[in-house]
Write a protein that binds this DNA or RNA. Structure first.
Lengths: 150, 150
DNA sequence: TTTCATGTAACTCAGTTTGATACATGATGG
DNA sequence: CCATCATGTATCAAACTGAGTTACATGAAA
């Protein structure tokens, strides 16, 4: 199944924004994330609505963080993206008449529900700052001199 | 993303098989699960390979359980289906050159990995017998007289 | 006024599950 | 032996969704 990579793309963009003093264009972010600029704009639109980032038009325009990365959790990003579907598997019917189907749905919702709760709480417990710190730690670990990224 | 309902369909079929003394045809199972007979055969093929069910051709043929439902866990079914993709979201690149991308991947794999572990252990802890018992409990709870299903 | 960058619509492409048709295989019952 | 039933499987279409692409309007800056 094709996987939704918007969370991944967005986190990537946010970390790069955090590392930059100036606004970054969707073109630049797209190169770094290896995807299309329109995808960046489309995806970050949700973050703009959630007031996590701002965008500016014209010369020197682009995308900028609206608050420090230690106050942006992965859960915030997930929410800003519109809480996209987490699981590739699930129930089949919304209102099954069959009692067996209902029991199957209860069993699956129970298991998947718990996993979802854990995932969301995990996402809420990690900030973008920690991702950035992790990237920097690996940067120091390697022997590259400067500005490792794309 | 379209959701994979094979686990749901399969559990449904297994419970109905458990309730039946004779073999059930893919046609019958398809009616009960409200899907296509070919989908039933395709999906149950994995269970046959895992020796959870058997199928017989010809008159009186169909699908039958190969062991009691209290010895079939949802995890067994998940495995027999070929451990299909659990999450609709995920990383984007297998081997990203960008250190930021790598850090994002680590963070996501950590969160999603924990959720996956919990889900799988949940699936392993529940047997089809429990789903069946749950369905029967609701059956008694309702006032229908007999043979509630499709 | 020219250039740059976003905002967004519209369309195509790609990957996956499900639906549907078709036919070969094999078992059962007469 | 033969008709029927049911699986096994290949093949193709339908539906859905994310991503890629093109196009153009909007607005800011030089």
């Amino acid at each position: 199944m094709k996987r939704d990579s918007r969370l991944s793309i967005t986190l990537h963009a946010l970390v790069h924004m955090a590392e930059s003093s100036r606004a970054l264009t969707s073109e630049e972010l797209a190169v770094q994330a290896d995807c299309n600029p329109v995808v960046i704009r489309r995806t970050l639109a949700g973050l703009r609505k959630a007031r996590i980032v701002v965008s500016e038009k014209g010369h020197g325009g682009g995308w900028r963080l609206l608050r420090p990365v230690d106050r942006i959790t992965l859960g915030d990003v997930y929410d800003a993206l519109g809480t996209p579907t987490i699981f590739a598997m699930g129930d089949r019917t919304e209102s099954p008449g069959c009692l067996v189907e209902q029991a199957v749905n209860r069993a699956m919702r129970d298991a998947f529900g718990q996993a979802e709760s854990l995932l969301v709480s995990q996402l809420r417990s990690v900030s973008v700052a920690e991702v950035l710190a992790d990237a920097r730690a690996y940067h120091r670990g390697s022997h590259k001199t400067e500005n490792q990224h794309a």
